[in-house]
C-alpha cells in the first residue's frame, strides 16, 4: 500500500511539471485602456504631476514574456531608427538616467501612445495597447530598471550592448552608494 502512495505522489509531482507558463496574450480591451490626457508640459505646480497608475504597468514590467515581446517589437517597429538600440541618435538615448518625461511605465506608455514634441510620433491606434505596455517595459529594461530574472538575457543578432538582464542601473551607475 505504502509504495503505491509514494508512486502516486511522485507521479503527481512529475505531472506538475507539465503546467505551462500562462502567457497573457488576449487583452480585455485592446485599445485605449485609459484616456489619460496628454501632458504637453512638465511644468506642474508642486513638482511632477502624479500619473494615474495602471495595473498593467507592474505586471508587465516583471514578466519575462512581455519584456521579450517588447524587445522583439522594438526591432520590428524600427525604434532603433531614431533611438539606435537605446544609445540615442536622432532621438534621445534610452539607456542613460535622463528621462525628459519621467521614467515610470505610465510615462513611457504615454510617450509611445501620444508622442512627444520635437519628433516622437504618436502610435495611438497603430500599436495595440498591450504591445505599447510591452515596449514600455522593454525601454525601462535598457537602463537596468527591469528585474534581472525577467529581462532578456540574449540577443538573436549582434549584441549592441550587454544583454538587458546585465544592464547596469543607469541611475546609480558611477555613484558611490
Amino acid at each position: 500500500m505504502r509504495p503505491a502512495v509514494v508512486m502516486l505522489l511522485l507521479a503527481g509531482l512529475a505531472l506538475a511539471a507539465c503546467q505551462r507558463e500562462e502567457r497573457d496574450t488576449r487583452p480585455q480591451s485592446a485599445l485605449g485602456s485609459g484616456e489619460q490626457p496628454t501632458p504637453v508640459t512638465t511644468l506642474e505646480p508642486g513638482g511632477q504631476r502624479p500619473s494615474p497608475s495602471d495595473n498593467k504597468a507592474a505586471s508587465f514590467e516583471a514578466n519575462a514574456f512581455h519584456l521579450s515581446e517588447g524587445k522583439r517589437l522594438f526591432g520590428w517597429f524600427n525604434c532603433s531608427g531614431c533611438h539606435a538600440n537605446g544609445g540615442g541618435g536622432m532621438g534621445p538615448a534610452l539607456m542613460d538616467e535622463k528621462w525628459i518625461y519621467g521614467s515610470s511605465m505610465e510615462s513611457i506608455h504615454a510617450t509611445i501612445r501620444d508622442g512627444r514634441p520635437n519628433g516622437m510620433p504618436s502610435f495611438r491606434d497603430m500599436i495595440p495597447d498591450d504591445q505599447i505596455w510591452e515596449l514600455a517595459a522593454f525601454v525601462r529594461s535598457l537602463s537596468g530598471n527591469a528585474p534581472s530574472a525577467a529581462a532578456p538575457s540574449r540577443d538573436d543578432d549582434m549584441m549592441a550592448h550587454p544583454s538587458e538582464n546585465r544592464m547596469p542601473n543607469a541611475a546609480t551607475l558611477g555613484k558611490s552608494p
Partner: peptide
C-alpha cells in the same frame, strides 16, 4: 493560433 505574433486588435 495561441501564442502567434499577430496581436489581438480592438
Amino acid at each position: 493560433k495561441p501564442g502567434s505574433h499577430m496581436p489581438v486588435v480592438d
